[in-house]
Design a protein around this nucleic acid. Sequence first.
DNA 1: CTACAAGTGGAGTGCAACTTCCACTTGCTT
DNA 2: AAGCAAGTGGAAGTTGCACTCCACTTGTAG
Lengths: 226, 226
Amino acid sequence: MPRTKTVADGDRDLRVDAERNRNRILAAARDVFAEQGLQAPMAAVARRAGVGIATLFRRFPTKDDLVTAVFADKMRTYAQVVDEALDDPDPWRGFRTCVERVCEMQAADRGFTDVLTVAFPSATAFEAERDRAVARLSELIDNAKATGRLRADFVHQDMIMVLMANSGVLAATAEAAQDTWRRLVAYLIQAFAAEAAGPLPDPATPDEVTLALLRRNAAAGDGPSD
Amino acid sequence: MPRTKTVADGDRDLRVDAERNRNRILAAARDVFAEQGLQAPMAAVARRAGVGIATLFRRFPTKDDLVTAVFADKMRTYAQVVDEALDDPDPWRGFRTCVERVCEMQAADRGFTDVLTVAFPSATAFEAERDRAVARLSELIDNAKATGRLRADFVHQDMIMVLMANSGVLAATAEAAQDTWRRLVAYLIQAFAAEAAGPLPDPATPDEVTLALLRRNAAAGDGPSD
DNA sequence: CTACAAGTGGAGTGCAACTTCCACTTGCTT
DNA sequence: AAGCAAGTGGAAGTTGCACTCCACTTGTAG
């Protein structure tokens, strides 16, 4: 038994060249998706990575697998932004910075915008990260509310709403008026301030929002019938 | 000279059955796009209209042509909403109603959401309507500002920004949490109130926003090169 | 150095969409 | 009533993509 194969879940140990190619593919996919969005053809990723298409599909049997792998990282980074915001001695400033940072990341990555707007792959890879992020975010929100600066009726689902809204602006302004998202975010943050508080419709439940965040293309098979 | 052919621009007078089919196609397209979005196949429109595909393409040589024809109407309706808002004796209430109504229309029509988010066809058909709408909108905005309720740094481009943002929320919540857009709009309107006013990044120029609104898929040929 | 399993690349397949072609039908003119 | 241009439907053509197949190459164990 030459190979030690201790790792079970998906990646047994690859031959060194294969491992190198795998990394190249991931890096290429990160770039390509960020630039062109998720609809970028697999061939483009392969070309950028300098490998054949077959190699790409051997490592990631389906496009969803590749997308998932690429964005698992990103999701981790998002969670990290929340962590950093928690370190800010001024929770309200931390909160605002968090919103801005997250939207900025979105603006820098067309692929992530697509993930929210257009389609999303298998969910499981993200759930752990998501739950952790939600917990931290709720903490941040509570702290900010405690200062009296964040309106009391803000809920963590609103953060996802911000991402969705930002997503729409980014998608529409990819070619022109590219800084529009900053204005949107500024408006929203001002709306989140306690002084601005007026009545709001009830938010969706966290579960509904999660569903909205992940579902999307699962319903691709709903029959248009006639 | 049997046929009177007075109408020059695109539609000479059709045979009565052809005219009937044309109307059926438009009605079908309106429905199909509203339900399924712009990515609905042409075949679905033909099927719904009860005509063959060739008939559809004879009337609208390209999918863009059909989309344009369908949404020229809608654009007119949008402009009308602004007109109604101008009639409101309370300009600030008129303004808020206008924002809500427009977003509501968007929510009711998945196709219009796509027009903003995903792609857009030839521009010319809309320009007249757009210019008129902008003029009326500016008037509405000025009136609302005069009451002191609308913040002074609001610009008409912000209305498009609202549509874009709403578009993102709607696209993401098509399957779940479908009322999220109402909460977004409520937040935004509160942000537009004078009391909430804080510093904002400069808006894009009107031209940039128009470009962003119409361009989108014109750049489909930009070479990903490597 | 040799052998072979793992790895590779590019041609090929299937599919879903837009668009075109063409043999047939039909409303309108005389 | 007859003729024919306008109109029609569905079958093909085309393109763009995800994904597969297979003859070849290469890292590595003995």
